[in-house]
Simulated scan of single mutants.
Amino acid sequence: MSRNALVLQSDFGIDDGAVNAMYGVAYSVDSSIRIFDVTHNIPVFHIWEASYRLLQTVSYWPKGTVFVSVVDPGVGSERRSVAVRASSNQYIITPDNGTLTHVVQKNGIAEARHLDEVLNRLPNSGESHTFHGRDIYAYTGARLASGVISFDQIGPEVSPDSLIKLPVMEAYIDNDWVAGTIDILDIRFGNLWTNISRGLFSNLDIRYGDVLEVVITHGINEIYRQTIVFGRSFADIPVGEPLVYVNSLDNLGVAINQGSFAETHHIGTGIDWRISIRKAG
């Protein structure tokens, strides 16, 4: 029997037994299954962050790895459950509520299926309709990862185009400015991660050591406007100073060396948080 890793993420936290119960269900399917976590500290109901954390991790896992992502404010409603095969051949099982937005946009989806919640449900799980993470997603993910079922047994095929997607904005160049969104925070350090790719940024002919003008807005309000050095790494600048750099996803980031840029300047994330950068003149 072919076995693949099962990787879990949720907004459940680890202060109670919810995540442990998901582990238990997976091990009841196959006691030899290997289970790993992306994170269980997604802010509650924060579908956008769940989507981005999948982008951050999925393509770095071997083909056949099964991800289960449960950030599900619509649990118990008519919202659809889906299983998809990414173009890089990992699987993701999740509510169809926008959680796949960034994977669809950046990686692509090769195949999608409507997860049949009647056939793919933990036996004897009663009439509970509030813990699909345990009763449906962890159970189905473990069965797929352990080879008990195949992908096509999860449910009928649906078009990847039918998957629900959150609003996104593509980064773009306007004259000598490059503009995009602040998609996520590098949580532990408070760095801003943007959707401006290194490839797009390179069209501005900016070199390491150049000074950049950086403008951050939230809706119609300008929150930040300063000049910042473009550095190769944090070692390029003194402690406490800001820099623009290329992050681990090959996109532009903004940070303070050994400080939190987000906390210092009260910066958030999402489609309404915009950033524009150009070479300071």
Score class of each variant (00 low, 15 high):
residue 4 N to L: 03
residue 4 N to Q: 10
residue 4 N to P: 01
residue 4 N to M: 13
residue 5 A to R: 06
residue 6 L to S: 00
residue 13 G to W: 08
residue 14 I to G: 02
residue 14 I to T: 12
residue 15 D to C: 11
residue 16 D to Y: 15
residue 22 M to Y: 01
residue 25 V to Q: 04
residue 26 A to N: 08
residue 27 Y to C: 03
residue 30 D to C: 14
residue 30 D to A: 14
residue 31 S to E: 05
residue 32 S to E: 10
residue 32 S to H: 13
residue 33 I to V: 15
residue 44 V to Y: 11
residue 44 V to P: 12
residue 44 V to M: 10
residue 48 W to G: 10
residue 51 S to Y: 00
residue 53 R to F: 14
residue 56 Q to G: 04
residue 58 V to S: 01
residue 59 S to W: 06
residue 63 K to D: 05
residue 64 G to D: 04
residue 65 T to Y: 07
residue 67 F to R: 02
residue 68 V to N: 00
residue 69 S to T: 15
residue 72 D to R: 02
residue 72 D to F: 12
residue 73 P to F: 06
residue 75 V to H: 04
residue 76 G to N: 13
residue 78 E to V: 08
residue 80 R to D: 04
residue 82 V to R: 12
residue 89 N to C: 11
residue 90 Q to C: 09
residue 90 Q to D: 10
residue 91 Y to H: 02
residue 92 I to E: 01
residue 93 I to A: 01
residue 96 D to F: 13
residue 99 T to Q: 08
residue 100 L to T: 06
residue 103 V to W: 06
residue 105 Q to I: 00
residue 106 K to F: 10
residue 107 N to G: 10
residue 109 I to G: 10
residue 111 E to M: 12
residue 114 H to Y: 09
residue 119 L to H: 09
residue 119 L to E: 15
residue 120 N to C: 11
residue 121 R to G: 13
residue 124 N to R: 06
residue 126 G to R: 12
residue 127 E to A: 09
residue 128 S to P: 02
residue 128 S to C: 03
residue 130 T to K: 07
residue 131 F to V: 11
residue 134 R to N: 05
residue 135 D to W: 02
residue 135 D to Q: 05
residue 136 I to G: 01
residue 137 Y to M: 02
residue 137 Y to S: 01
residue 138 A to S: 14
residue 139 Y to F: 15
residue 140 T to E: 01
residue 141 G to Q: 05
residue 144 L to P: 00
residue 145 A to F: 04
residue 145 A to M: 02
residue 145 A to Q: 03
residue 151 F to R: 03
residue 156 P to W: 00
residue 157 E to F: 07
residue 158 V to W: 10
residue 160 P to Y: 02
residue 162 S to V: 05
residue 163 L to I: 15
residue 169 M to E: 14
residue 171 A to V: 04
residue 172 Y to L: 08
residue 174 D to N: 11
residue 174 D to I: 04
residue 176 D to S: 15
residue 180 G to C: 07
residue 184 I to T: 07
residue 188 R to K: 12
residue 189 F to P: 07
residue 189 F to V: 14
residue 191 N to P: 08
residue 191 N to E: 12
residue 191 N to S: 15
residue 197 S to L: 07
residue 197 S to C: 09
residue 199 G to E: 14
residue 200 L to P: 03
residue 202 S to W: 10
residue 204 L to K: 06
residue 204 L to R: 07
residue 207 R to T: 04
residue 208 Y to S: 09
residue 209 G to K: 13
residue 212 L to A: 06
residue 218 H to D: 14
residue 223 I to S: 10
residue 223 I to Q: 06
residue 224 Y to P: 00
residue 224 Y to L: 11
residue 224 Y to A: 01
residue 225 R to L: 09
residue 226 Q to Y: 12
residue 226 Q to L: 09
residue 227 T to C: 14
residue 228 I to H: 00
residue 232 R to Y: 11
residue 234 F to A: 09
residue 237 I to C: 04
residue 240 G to L: 00
residue 242 P to K: 05
residue 246 V to R: 01
residue 248 S to H: 12
residue 252 L to W: 01
residue 253 G to H: 02
residue 253 G to S: 08
residue 256 I to F: 04
residue 256 I to R: 03
residue 261 F to A: 05
residue 266 H to C: 04
residue 267 I to C: 12
residue 280 A to R: 13
